[in-house]
Design a protein around this nucleic acid. Sequence first.
RNA 1: GGUUCCUUGGCCGAGUGGCUAGGCAACGGUCUGCAAAACCGUGUACGGCGGUUCGAGUCCGCCAGGAACCUCCA
Length: 490
Amino acid sequence: MENKLFIYNTLSRKKEEFIPINPKHVGLYVCGPTVYGDPHLGHSRPAITYDILFRYLTHLGYKVRYVRNITDVGHLENDADVGEDKIAKKARLEELEPMEVVQYYSDRYHEYMDALNVRKPSIEPRASGHIIEQLQMVEDILKKGYAYESNGSVYFDVDKYNEQHNYGRLSGRNIEDMLSTTRDLDGQSEKRKSYDFALWKKAAPEHIMRWPSPFSDGFPGWHLECSAMSARYLGEEFDIHGGGMDLLFPHHECEIAQSTVAHGHTPARYWMHNNMITINGQKMGKSLGNFITLEQFFTGEHELLEQAYSPMTIRFFIMQAHYRSTLDFSNEALQAAQKGMERLLEGCAKMDKIKAGSQSDFNIAELSEKCYSAISDDLNTPILIAHLFEGVKWINTLVDKNASVTEDDLTALKLLMNTMVFDILGLKANQTQGGGNDALLSETVNLLLNLRVEAKANKDWATADKIRNELQTMGIVIKDTKDGFEWEIK
RNA sequence: GGUUCCUUGGCCGAGUGGCUAGGCAACGGUCUGCAAAACCGUGUACGGCGGUUCGAGUCCGCCAGGAACCUCCA
């Protein structure tokens, strides 16, 4: 099958056909989390977006090396000079070793990403494990004359870079504007221009996370890790670089500048940026303090949450919007997502009940074509999902025996639905369904429900209703079906 | 202040110069001892004002409202 994948490239501001550097391989780098707090809803957006990209590229037959870093050093709390490292700050507050904090929140991140069924990246490098690579890059840039040393720190010379290259190419800014709009921060005196950015920072005496270097005992600058680690694992030029839109400037702009000087060209060919999740119309983020953690979503324990939402509900909610649009959080939207997802998954589960016939009333090949062109069109998951609901409608009609399909078409339909829903969108079926989690409980409930069937047969509605209502109170939902009953734990 | 972007039916959210997005909710129906669930069917839209066009939510301009980035952020 011929599937041309189109990706919106922030560099060109256009959708472009994806053509990998190496026909069989794809190098994908995505900016991961800074591990100093519990993962919140916002973190799930890039994780899920690029997970779908990873899954789809893999499905298309590419061998994908997906690198997603963990930032455990280098981000400053406030401004350039007086700030302290976020990790170090958190460590002091909790009286922990910085690496203990990193370990804890990395584990938390992994736990919640697993819950969301986000596949693990191929490599998950940490900034602190690549100080040597970063220092080499600093020295290289310095040697080439695009950086200067000042009071033990090293800064990137944006003016010099901009003579030959275009600083602002990715973010669409120009350097004159930046000069007038960059904030006046304390300690800017070390820098020649306010828009110069740090490659290496000298550590203040109280700073715990520090490494020796020819310039000073210090730590690498804010943007260096991604450049150094992507080059190390994917090469100096790789295919796709992803991340949140909030990283577009300055982070990704700086990455491009650094890598261009060090390696002679832009590091990645395709730059993808996912949009933000908003809450009351505002970006959900760490700094605004308006975030809801994934743990809170899963338990429902947050004042803004009317109920708990399962990881798959969160995943589906995110996939129902295009990744480049903002997505507004609300209980209503999440509840709608939950119901829609349940219908989709139930549709998939019902496919086994369909018996093949002698003719097909549906064009499965056409549906398949539509699904592939949706996901190939810059990962248009909302359209893909709309088509899958068309499939669900067909499945229901077939289950009700109001239409028929041939054996071949049935196989094709099953393959299509399973591929799209489980392999590419990465949903997974609810495990508590049918009471398969505890044999004893399962048998007990089945016993009661069989008694209820007997009561119904005897027209003993009082007993039948009593069993139903009491089980309901315990959180067991009963569904009467044509051939008996189904139940699940809520 | 600068740059960029957004405004779609009750809610969430796609998309396109002319052809039904989809989900949820609502309403009607089927099923059921009743209910629930499930299934089927139905309606409402493109912020305001101008312009381009045979034809514009879709392109252009202005206005209103909102957001992101310019500081760490996914």
